[in-house]
């Protein structure tokens, strides 16, 4: 009996189905166009979904607790700009010259964390809807990113090594892949093996249980916002390095891309369990879809339409699967 349910569980697990969809998409594109199924193209796909995956790791946790963060895109842009600014100009106001990369990186991560703190304060202390709070912060962040260098890009005067983490490889493996891999591993461990992940699930899934078990939801949500802020800042540093310039317009619409990736990955907006792996596959699906449709030379506007259909279809499928599982369990429960 137990074995049987385990097998069944594996087959109907949303993440597995998502993976099948991913495989099917790849097959489809591979058969449709000779330009798709290439190792170099897959390298691109991973490279292009790097930021979504890295930030998505944090957002998955946030959404597990029934929160969300719309400020990640502008946080990313602000970090990209501030990082570039610090390594090129330093802090002119304090008479500090160009900073070394690591120092600028640390400052940027702190700023990203502070944006997380701002989100968290609004959500937990002032009791904002996460949607509204992070929307406000999104505007502020975008404005500040643009204001950093009067709306212009920073593209000269970078020190040596600026572009290394975003472009170079070690033993043939791009640094970006290593970061993504680390992020996935670290957050999977956080999810499965640490208090933070477990408590995040508990809060999103059953507030009462969390309360009676003596958890402090506010503190956990605050931590998650800070982590997400730092991740967005880190993605900003990577973006700056990858683009080899500081671009204040980068990351426009990024927040919704991440949101969609996390949703596709099976983390519902209403909280509860999600999986990092799901988010990763969700991010890959989004990227593969864009990449493959481009390779097939499908008009961009059809791609937007497909995006909408797939989003709604996937969520409907998810909710049906969930309902099906639940009903099956209830039926099993009453029989027992």
């Amino acid at each position: 009996m137990a074995n049987k349910t385990n097998k069944l569980k594996f087959l109907t697990h949303p993440t597995f189905i998502l993976f099948l969809v991913f495989v099917a998409l790849n097959l489809f594109f591979a058969f449709s166009t000779p330009r798709f199924f290439k190792l170099s193209n897959y390298m691109n796909i991973i490279r292009q979904s790097t930021m979504i995956m890295i930030v998505g790791c944090g957002c998955t946790f946030l959404m597990m607790t029934e929160s969300l963060d719309l400020s990640v895109g502008s946080n990313l842009a602000l970090s990209c700009m501030v990082y570039s600014f610090l390594v090129v100009f330093g802090i002119p106001g304090l008479g500090i010259g160009p900073l070394p990369l690591w120092a600028a990186g640390i400052i940027v991560l702190i700023i990203g964390g502070l944006i997380g703190v701002l989100n968290a304060v609004l959500v937990t202390r002032f009791d904002f809807e996460p949607f509204i709070a992070t929307l406000g912060v999104m505007y502020i962040g975008r404005g500040l990113a643009l204001a950093t260098f009067d709306g212009k890009s920073i593209r000269t005067g970078f020190p040596d090594g600026f572009e290394v983490i975003g472009n170079d490889s070690i033993l043939g493996v791009p640094y970006l892949f290593i970061f993504v891999f680390l992020a996935i591993v670290i957050f999977s461990i956080l999810h499965k093996k640490t208090l933070l992940g477990k408590h995040a699930i508990a809060i999103g899934c059953n507030k009462n249980a969390a309360f009676f078990s003596g958890l402090n939801p506010k503190r956990i949500v605050t931590r998650l916002y800070i982590i997400t802020g730092c991740l967005a800042a880190f993605a900003g540093i990577l973006t700056a390095s990858r683009l080899e310039h500081g671009d204040p317009r980068t990351g426009t619409g990024f927040e919704f891309t991440v949101l969609v990736a996390v949703l596709l990955g099976g983390t519902p907006l209403s909280g509860g369990n999600g999986t990092i792996l799901g988010t990763v596959i969700g991010a890959l699906i989004i990227t593969v879809l864009g990449n493959g449709l481009n390779a097939m030379d499908i008009l961009k506007f059809w791609q937007i339409v497909f995006k909408g259909i797939i989003l709604i279809g996937a969520i409907v499928l998810h909710s049906q699967l969930r309902a099906r599982r639940r009903n099956a369990l209830i039926a099993a429960g009453t029989k027992a």
Binding site: V137, Y139, G141, G143, A145, D150, P248
Partner: peptide, 10 residues
Amino acid sequence: EHFYQEVARG
């Protein structure tokens, strides 16, 4: 400038 407008909006 438009970027301060964004900050102001937020």
